[in-house]
Design a protein around this nucleic acid. Structure first.
Lengths: 261, 261
DNA sequence: GAGTGGTCTAGACCACAGG
DNA sequence: CTGTGGTCTAGACCACTCT
């Protein structure tokens, strides 16, 4: 059974550093189903004794698996194979809100507010929202959870003229905007990937360094006025964005808008 | 000048672990412009001596900055602030190929072939492409570079009936398909984020663990037949996908197609 | 209190880059 | 050759969990 951590087979020349060999063994055990979600690994000191490696080397071998979310470490408790996270899928071709999107799937949605209020705008907000001198900005910052699992951090900025009372937003921002007759009809998004920093990783309950989807969105009213500038971070291991593409028309292409950094 | 690595200010209670304090100092120096792209940091042993920390702790402090691409380490040479990578932007709403997309921007495009040939299909290829027993599959695997910088790994699978001679593809796959009258008109993509493994990171010339954009694409002929199943990995720090969204029609929504894992 | 992961140290050897 | 990062060790203390 425990040939997984047997000292045999380590350091055969050409197999690379010891910590990578250990990493490979564990990764393959997870991939093959030999280690199942929820299973615990031996304590680090025991893995070190079993393999004949030092504890530091064992930690380094485990490190990348924790960073990529395949293992979970709990201080005082142990190291465990991570539970499978159901991957959600969001259609990008439609302009919907997180709340609407999840409810359509029968998921519960909760938000945990990090901040909500009126502030003096940051330079990038002035740029993105086209604010004038003296204009104020409404900021909504929250963690979105679905069925209790934190899925995304959402940081929205709106001109105070659009949302004078941010405290009134309790659930869906878009529902509030709709009530005021200010629902956006068009948006431009930019999607990229980034390693999560300590703070954001903590908020999403994943280890630092895990890959996240970063999305910046600018939403527009029919008039062309900017309604919101939102920066979101989604858990990369729990979210898929789906897009349907169509053949490009052979004719012109208009320049794309840029969202300031 | 070198208060950056002065021992003062370390370990003031409440400031967290020493390696995080060092991490923070360096990150702020990069953020504020005090350390500019191309600048070198002192050798690890010197940083250790200057700060009064051990070399292991210094390495741990630097580690996350290397993983996120802000620093670059070269064995035998030193540790450097990473050059700024220009961020490219791709419009997602149109169905274009990498080659066409880059040329429209005036970038040079090169490909480095990793593999190209006919094979017996893997189970996921059978599923995605709707193959029958005995059908073979054409595989194209390459690294895409733009102006000499590796930007993406592309792994495309097509039914042999669509592309009987994969060796004939030298530049744009879509150009070859077009010549054969088999250009796809529709595609479904799924976008997610993942930490790059050692192999893929090496191919893209970034450190292991960096966040990458993972894209799976299924392309269709007008007849509905699947033309290609492509899995791509883009450098998360060098690529933006841009999407334009429109208001969802109030009416029905059709179920989205799923691409098998 | 016993056991876990989290941090930290001092010292060692190796592989590689560059003069 | 010297200096760099890459790996590895043995041992220590701390903070937390679990019982």
């Amino acid at each position: 059974m425990d040939d997984l951590f047997s000292p045999d087979g380590f350091d055969e020349t050409g197999a690379g550093p010891l910590y990578l060999q250990l990493h490979r063994r564990i990764a393959e055990a997870i991939g093959s189903g030999r280690l199942k979600p929820g299973d615990s690994l031996p304590p680090e000191r025991e893995m070190a004794a079993l393999t004949g490696l030092s504890r530091v080397t064992v930690r380094k071998g485990v490190e990348a698996l924790v960073a990529s979310g395949q293992l979970v470490q709990r201080r005082g408790s142990g190291t465990f194979v991570a539970p499978r996270v159901e991957r959600l899928e969001q259609a990008l071709s439609l302009l919907t809100s997180f709340t609407e999107d999840m409810e359509r799937r029968g998921k519960t949605v909760e938000s945990f507010w990090l901040a909500r209020g009126l502030h003096a705008p940051a330079p990038e907000e002035v740029m993105a929202l086209g604010l004038g001198a003296g204009d104020r900005v409404a900021r909504l910052e929250r963690v979105r959870t679905s069925d209790g699992v934190p899925l995304a951090i959402e940081r929205a900025s709106l001109p105070a003229s659009i949302l004078p009372d941010p405290e009134a937003v309790t659930r869906s921002l878009y529902a509030v905007l709709e009530d005021r007759g200010l629902r956006p009809v068009r948006a431009v998004q930019r999607i990229s990937a980034a390693n999560l920093g300590q703070r954001d990783a903590d908020l999403l309950n994943v280890p630092q360094g895990v890959a996240g989807l970063r999305i910046e969105r600018l939403s527009y009213l029919p008039s062309g006025k900017v309604v919101e500038f939102t920066r979101s971070l989604y858990r990369g291991d729990a979210y898929d964005f789906a897009v349907e593409l169509k053949l490009a028309p052979e004719t012109a292409h208009r320049p794309r808008e840029r969202i300031p950094e």
